[in-house]
């Protein structure tokens, strides 16, 4: 089993619903976030293009954050989900520095926090909060090892890219273009 997410940049309107739904679902303190929106603008008026992306932890196969964690708090769960055992985290911040996606933050209570793919929901067969709230239905989540999962299907049919491929982290957030 290998969980992954594919996000359709053709449909995303950058509304931030994924951000606030994650915050309320996971009780992320206000002022912090586990996912966010990035907008890139290219060209000169009126030949301009923009891309809107919902970004978060890439749940990499080769995660620098897991490798550099001195206590083992950062670890892989089943299905390749990268999470942090809050009670084992000493808050050293090495993982924050190592992440090429800037996906982690220091929680005010002293540990490092990040996207969990809403493991607590996924375990019950639900989708992550961001996926289930998205008004444009631009996010697809599921098991890449299952050829019939919606994420496998959409990735077969569409062009896609990953962020910072040069980092060699084997990320599992894919952007449909």
């Amino acid at each position: 089993m290998r969980y992954a997410m594919a996000i359709d940049t053709r449909k995303c309107v950058g509304c931030s619903d994924c951000v606030v739904a994650c915050q309320t679902e996971n009780n992320v303190p206000i002022g912090y976030c586990r996912d966010w929106i990035v907008e890139t603008v290219a060209g000169t008026y009126p030949n301009v293009e923009i891309e809107l992306r919902s970004e978060r932890c890439n749940h990499c196969d080769n995660s620098p954050c897991v490798r550099c964690c001195p206590t083992g708090a950062s670890h892989y769960e089943e299905g390749g989900i990268v999470t942090v055992h809050h009670n084992e985290c000493i808050g050293c911040g090495a993982c924050i520095q190592s992440c090429p996606y800037d996906a982690r933050y220091s929680h005010p209570e002293g540990y490092v926090d990040k996207c969990t793919f809403c493991l607590h929901r996924v375990e019950k067969g639900q989708k992550p909060a961001c996926v289930s709230v998205c008004p444009t239905k631009c996010m697809y989540f599921g098991d890449l090892d299952d050829p019939n999962s919606e994420v496998s299907v959409v990735m077969r049919n569409r062009n896609h890219k990953v962020l910072a491929p040069e980092a060699g982290t084997k990320p599992h957030i894919f952007y449909l273009t």
Partner: peptide
């Protein structure tokens, strides 16, 4: 982590903690 010409929108800032 964002390329040139990019803008991080809606990334919350440290603020009030209820």
């Amino acid at each position: 982590s964002v390329g040139a010409g990019s803008l991080a929108l809606a990334k919350p800032v440290l603020g009030w903690l209820p």
